[in-house]
Design a protein around this nucleic acid. Structure first.
Lengths: 145, 145
DNA sequence: CACCTTCATTTGCATATACAAATATAGAGG
DNA sequence: CCTCTATATTTGTATATGCAAATGAAGGTG
């Protein structure tokens, strides 16, 4: 790889982050393939688990997704009877159903497997550092916009 | 945020990486909005710039995208007259046109602006470290699969 | 050379995700 | 209590992206 390319490829966060997201998503899909729920739904379920009655808006913020995307996610999870919507004025409050709670508990197990899969390849400390940095960076970017 | 949630949210690379990718993609779209070419196409153009005559398969690897996605990207770039396809047996070789080269040069300028936008928020050294880690991590994950 | 296998690319189809416009509700000011 | 404005959600529509099946080309083996 020549110098200029190396420079750009390793320095542009947009490139490195989107590529990495595709790779780790693939790994997550392979690891979670038990149920037919995609990893992104599990992400949402997890947030709701820790914030029963969370508003949709807040959910969007925590996941960094657009409102329209959250509507569609919730539609799907509601159809699967994993979450409930409760209208509250302008807002909609989201909570887990019993079944949702159960899915969450199964998911905790798969999560451990996912950790171990990527830690084998990336190293445990490296993974942990990277994850923390990404978390922090998202919070900063969200705050700005 | 309670402890268990904090644990999961900051430790799961799948969550942190996909969220961050959405955030940085949004920033990239805002920064590059000059032309009507989305950032992901610029990423491809950049790779081709440094590897004239690269095979489609190799391009998929470098971008971590599926072959079908590369076909569609190239279709679009070819229609815009930014790249050319050259059949070579089973393979297809991709190169930039003159116009493609020109787009690349404009893009270099936007890239600098993008760097500066996120460095302001994340810090210059932090951004650089994060980017290198992501680059390295993708290479490791790709090698495994 | 006909056939089989292997590999690269393309096509058909499905899902994730976004933006912009539409809708619904809340709350302020008359 | 009506109207206006601000805000939350939903709907319409478009694009990105993937998987699996189809296609096409290479190279080996009889």
């Amino acid at each position: 790889m020549n110098n200029e390319e190396e420079q750009i490829l390793t320095h542009c966060l947009y490139f490195t982050a989107s590529r990495f997201a595709r790779n780790i998503t693939k790994l997550a899909e392979q690891t979670f393939n038990a149920g037919d729920i995609a990893p992104s739904y599990l992400y949402m379920i997890m947030i709701v688990k820790f914030h029963p009655g969370i508003t949709q808006k807040e959910l969007c913020h925590k996941l960094s997704i657009a409102p329209s995307t959250s509507t569609r996610f919730i539609d799907k999870l509601e159809k699967l009877k994993l979450v409930t919507r409760k209208a509250d004025g302008k807002q909609t409050l989201i909570s887990l159903t019993e079944e949702g709670e159960e899915v969450y508990h199964q998911f905790r197990v798969s999560l451990k497997e996912l950790y171990s899969n990527y830690s084998k390849v990336l190293g445990s400390e490296f993974s942990s550092d990277l994850s923390k940095m990404l978390h922090e960076a998202s919070n900063k970017l969200e705050r700005e916009s």
